[in-house]
Amino acid sequence: MSHAPTAALHDPRQARPGRTDPGVSARVRRVLDLPEPVERSAGRAVAHRALERLGGPVGLLVAAAPTVAFVAADAAAGLGAALVALALAAVLGCAVRLARREPPGAAVAGVLVAALCAGVAVLAGEARAFFLPTTLLPVAFIVAYAVSLLARRPLMGVVVNPLVGGPRAWREHRDLRRAYTASTLIVLALASANLLVRVVSYLEGQLAVLAGLQVGVPVLFATHFALTVVVARRVVRRSTTGSPTTPLPAHA
């Protein structure tokens, strides 16, 4: 005799605390003429995951505040005022992060990065030098992505696979390896474009563009990372629910 009905009655998904009976909910919606609930789309899930990775709206604002304060103060009153505004914004951002119980290391790192950029600007005697460290930083990522692809160990697979519960031998699964390779190629292209635009903007002294990149690029990369997690999780789920990913030949 099948026990499916009994299992359905005891399915924990049907008895979550605080969950209203579907029948009652449907009747209430009909009486109040409310629309049917819609599950969060994949796009919204990716956006939500990316925002979480950046610390939510508050975390995003805290990360952007020092750069915005520096550029605005420099445009209004010069480098000296920009350094003061930067210091105030960085210290305030650190305090906000600690108040939100974020890891102290992350809070202090924000201050150290701001101090490093400010030090370079002081040594160079010009505001645009504030962006020099972050202009050159993409070079390291480009090298890392390229080397991982040449070694046939795409970096996005190394980072993402443990997070999605993928098999340790993910390189032997064609679907997973293709997904991680494609993701690494995409992020390599993004990093290369980011470097190119930063260098051109730096040489032309376009501080507003550099500030926009410094604020917006982390959002772009966080979105890419979140999308990779979603795609990889689906591939892993298929491999564990009766539709396994195709293993690679032994000689591959």
Rank of each mutant, 00 (worst) to 15 (best):
H48A: 14
P104L: 03
A109P: 03
A26Q: 13
A106V: 08
E172R: 15
T223D: 03
R153F: 07
A77R: 15
P37Q: 12
M156F: 05
P247T: 06
E204Q: 13
L190A: 15
A232Q: 05
M1G: 15
T241Q: 12
A182P: 08
T223A: 14
R177F: 13
L207E: 10
T67W: 08
D33G: 00
R238P: 09
W170Y: 08
A226Y: 05
L54G: 08
T246R: 12
Y180R: 10
L54P: 06
A76W: 15
L34W: 12
A226M: 00
A109F: 07
A193F: 05
L112W: 00
A76N: 09
V28Y: 09
A121H: 05
I142N: 07
R128M: 00
V209F: 01
A179G: 11
R171P: 07
L207R: 11
A118W: 00
W170G: 01
L176K: 09
P103V: 07
S239F: 04
T184R: 02
A208L: 15
R30Q: 14
A106Q: 15
S148F: 03
S41D: 12
A191Y: 06
V219I: 15
M156P: 06
V28L: 14
V229F: 03
V111F: 01
A232D: 06
R27T: 14
T240M: 13
G55W: 02
E102T: 09
V58Q: 09
T223R: 14
V143Q: 11
L98M: 10
S243H: 15
P138K: 02
V231T: 06
Q214W: 00
S183Q: 11
V147W: 13
V84S: 13
A179K: 12
V199D: 00
G110I: 03
G18A: 02
D175L: 02
T184H: 01
T67P: 02
V46A: 09
G242F: 01
V122K: 04
G166L: 06
D74N: 14
P37R: 09
G212I: 03
L137I: 05
E36Y: 06
A65P: 01
A121L: 00
L88G: 05
T245Q: 12
V236L: 01
S25N: 14
P103W: 01
T246H: 10
V111L: 13
A114M: 05
V219D: 07
S192H: 02
A211V: 04
T241F: 02
L60E: 07
P138L: 03
C94L: 13
A140N: 11
R13Q: 12
P103Y: 03
P218N: 12
L61T: 09
R177A: 08
L60H: 02
P138Q: 00
G78N: 09
R44Q: 14
A115G: 04
L150S: 11
C94W: 00
V235G: 03
R100W: 08
G56M: 05
